[in-house]
């Protein structure tokens, strides 16, 4: 399985993402600088990592979403490619129009940095098929702007189409319906605020993120 990680100025989870992908796939991802105008050929997955791209200026992810490489990432996603955005990567995917809604300042106004319990709402995606629907897992969150908001029609559609991948078990940041992660209509784009890539090694923060990468790897290898 061939993967790439996009690196923006201010990304800080790009190397964690690379470690998680290498553990799951056995191959190192290509690290792609945001100013590049082409993705490597033959990719199965593009990961947009966490961090504080462009210092969170203007709106989190807004400036990164206009980086040259994001036109390629958007085209890759629209052509049916798999795109995973975590934390700031989720904000970038929303600002780039790959996922609906918006991520706003946490309702508490506090930066939240702790392990949180999540429910896997849908196991029907390449990312979540390594879990059971309804399974409770624990992943770390670390964000200031993770309050997911969308209009009522969008929220209803996400629910009806089974596109809510993860929900916080308890209120974490004020997100509508406690949404922690959502899928695109074709289920190949996932954006989530919690960090699965920080939970793939028993020596650090548990391994509840590992099934996401192993499931993805297994499904894409088999495809």
């Amino acid at each position: 399985m061939k993967t790439a990680v996009i690196v923006f100025p201010g990304s800080n989870c790009d190397r964690d993402m690379a470690v998680a992908l290498r553990k799951a796939t056995g191959a190192s991802p290509a690290m792609v600088w945001h100013k590049d105008s082409r993705l490597p050929d033959g990719l199965d997955l593009v990961a947009v990592p966490g961090g504080f791209s462009f210092g969170d200026y203007l709106r989190c992810g807004a400036i990164a979403a206009q980086s040259p490489i994001m036109r390629e990432v958007a085209a890759f996603g629209q052509a049916g490619g798999h795109v995973l955005g975590v934390c700031n990567g989720f904000q970038v995917l929303i600002e780039a129009g790959l996922l609906p809604g918006v991520l706003m300042r946490n309702a508490t106004l506090k930066f939240v940095c702790r392990d949180v319990p999540l429910a896997v709402e849908s196991a029907d995606s390449p990312y979540t098929q390594g879990y059971e629907a309804g399974q409770e897992i624990t992943l770390p969150v670390a964000h200031h702007d993770g309050c997911y908001i969308a209009d009522d029609d969008t929220l209803a559609r996400l629910g009806d189409e089974g596109r809510i991948a993860f929900r916080y078990r308890d209120a974490v940041n004020g997100s509508a319906d406690n949404i922690a992660g959502i899928l695109s209509r074709n289920r190949r784009v996932l954006g989530m605020m919690p960090h699965p890539e920080r939970a793939v090694d028993p020596r650090t923060l548990g391994t509840d993120g590992a099934p996401l990468f192993h499931g993805l790897s297994g499904m894409l290898e088999a495809a």
């Binding site: 203007l58 807004a62 206009q66 600002e95 918006v102």
Partner: peptide, 9 residues
């Protein structure tokens, strides 16, 4: 439309 505002909100 493209950058300064997020017209969703």
């Amino acid at each position: 439309r493209r950058l300064l505002a997020n017209t969703v909100i």
